[in-house]
Simulated assay, not measured.
Amino acid sequence: MARIGYARVSTTDQDLTVQLERLAAEGCSVVRSEKVSGGSRDGRVELETILQFLRPGDELVVARLDRLGRSTRDVLNIIHEAEERRAFVTVLDPHVSTRGEMGHLVMTVLGMVAQMERRFIKERQRDGIERAKAEGAYKGGKARFDHALAVQLKGQGFGPSAIARRMGCSRMQVYRMLSKN
């Protein structure tokens, strides 16, 4: 029986340290982490790896339920997949586990709260963007990578993989930057 930790943040500029330290302090023998949105299961390779390798009696541990997912359906599906492997899911804050029936109820409610919170965040973001556009202050999101550098490196003969490694991004991001020029 292993305690396997899972940590997630939504963007590459966010820090995983607090979650990783908390999971280690809880005795997780393995901790997998990723920087990807929790809005859906798409692209969450580390979570999929954990779910594939859960054994009977193992425990998937997350710091907060919203780290597992922001959709009630996704959270419940993850719990279901763990249970199909006769494993448990434990959330540290607030401390809830699927080891008991009450844990299932609380997880469902917390999943619904996480989904509602995500909707509120999106609404506030949309309202803020509309207000900024009306005031003429909205210029779009901040560019995360230097597009000119990508073009310059391409001109120097670097391929997309080499550019991605040098800039600390994915090849797909390099293709997108180069297609805009």
Rank of each mutant, 00 (worst) to 15 (best):
A2E: 14
A2D: 10
I4L: 15
G5L: 12
Y6A: 05
A7N: 01
A7V: 07
A7K: 04
R8T: 12
R8V: 05
V9F: 03
V9M: 04
V9D: 11
S10L: 13
S10C: 10
T11N: 11
T11W: 05
T12P: 05
D13P: 01
D13N: 14
Q14N: 06
Q14E: 10
Q14W: 07
D15H: 10
L16V: 09
L16Y: 09
T17Q: 13
T17P: 01
V18E: 14
Q19H: 07
Q19I: 11
Q19K: 03
L20K: 08
E21C: 00
E21Y: 00
E21D: 15
R22D: 02
R22V: 11
L23I: 05
L23F: 04
L23M: 07
A24V: 09
A25N: 12
C28W: 02
C28R: 05
S29E: 14
R32H: 13
S33W: 10
E34L: 12
K35I: 11
K35H: 14
V36G: 06
S37A: 12
S37N: 11
G38A: 02
G39P: 01
G39W: 03
G39I: 12
S40D: 15
R41N: 02
R41V: 00
D42M: 04
G43N: 06
G43E: 11
G43K: 04
R44C: 07
R44H: 12
R44T: 08
R44K: 13
L47Q: 12
E48L: 04
T49D: 13
T49M: 10
T49C: 10
L51W: 01
Q52K: 13
F53G: 11
F53E: 14
E59P: 10
L60V: 06
L60Q: 05
L60F: 07
L60A: 07
V61N: 07
V62S: 01
A63T: 12
A63R: 10
A63D: 14
R64K: 15
R64L: 00
R64W: 02
R64A: 08
L65I: 15
D66R: 00
D66A: 03
G69E: 00
R70E: 05
T72N: 03
R73K: 13
R73Q: 14
D74H: 07
